[in-house]
Design a protein around this nucleic acid. Structure first.
Lengths: 151, 151
DNA sequence: TTGCAAATGATAATGATTTTCTGTTAGGCC
DNA sequence: GGCCTAACAGAAAATCATTATCATTTGCAA
């Protein structure tokens, strides 16, 4: 049984427990997500899934994303363009660095920053519930002799 | 001359420098923003400004926000609901803590966290261009005898 | 297998934001 | 002071992601 199959099985029992059903569409979308190593948006997920089942509709993708999110199976992020992007959730917490030139999303995590955030919230009299941290950066050229970009 | 007037004057000369004009509407919107101590969205700004000039239209607010932003006079933020909120920009950089219960937005800044972010980006081979940090928290009760909320 | 709640697909609706269209105005120039 | 015209303004239509509606289909438990 592949990792993807295991995830789908786990989710199916989660659904059952919530009185919801496992359908072909949900299975397919879940598979697409489990196999994605990026952060696709609804349309991206739809496109990939549609290739396997041309009867699928975009509404179903949106609806399914909501179910998946409410079950904690996926995480939703909205970076600067405001569009929701998704990734499966059974992984360690992490934040994102977005390459401002290419749009590439890099995951990272830092205990130090987590701790610091908690402390800052505490100083303000708050208990940290969650946070959103996005770094926007530009790839550094490895240091070379002289100035920028040799032809 | 009030602080608000000073801000408006500064902005007027900025506009001039960019070949743009100072209009009644821009003056009004700028005044509303300068006097706001919260983070209103376009509709909120429109509502407040409309009270002073019922001929103002929402499109003008949106257009003006874009001009103001391009001139660096305001900053735009989009918290979890995805709606753009604005605040005037002539202040120190800061991040936001959002009270998950009340929606209240608290500003804070931390050199430590700025530095840490820069270092994390650097470790990933990136130069930090900007970042977005939002903490979502719940107000801590001052410690009392016993458990939560006494009736 | 049958019944029915839940889910789906197609499509319309929503809501924030942007663009288009067309008429108005500021402000330098004569 | 009056003209000219690019920049403006307001109204309304267009966009775009997302959500709601509704008639039809489908899991799935009895």
């Amino acid at each position: 049984m592949t990792e993807t199959d295991r995830r789908i099985a786990v989710f199916e029992s989660q659904l059952k427990g919530a009185g919801l059903r496992m359908t072909q569409q949900r299975r397919l979308i879940l598979r697409v997500l489990a196999e994605a190593d990026d952060h696709p948006d609804a349309k991206g997920i739809f496109t990939r899934a549609f290739a396997h089942d041309p009867t699928l509709s975009l509404s179903t993708v949106y609806r399914t994303m909501k179910v998946l999110e409410s079950q904690g199976a996926i995480e939703r992020h909205a970076f600067e363009d405001g569009i929701s992007r998704y990734e499966h959730a059974d992984q360690e917490h992490h934040d994102h660095l977005i390459d401002v030139d290419s749009g590439e999303v890099i995951e990272f995590s830092s205990d130090a920053i987590e701790e610091l955030q908690r402390r800052i919230a505490a100083e303000l009299g708050y208990e940290l519930v969650r946070h959103r941290l996005e770094l926007y950066g530009r790839k550094k050229q490895p240091a070379r002799r002289g100035g920028r970009k040799a032809p």
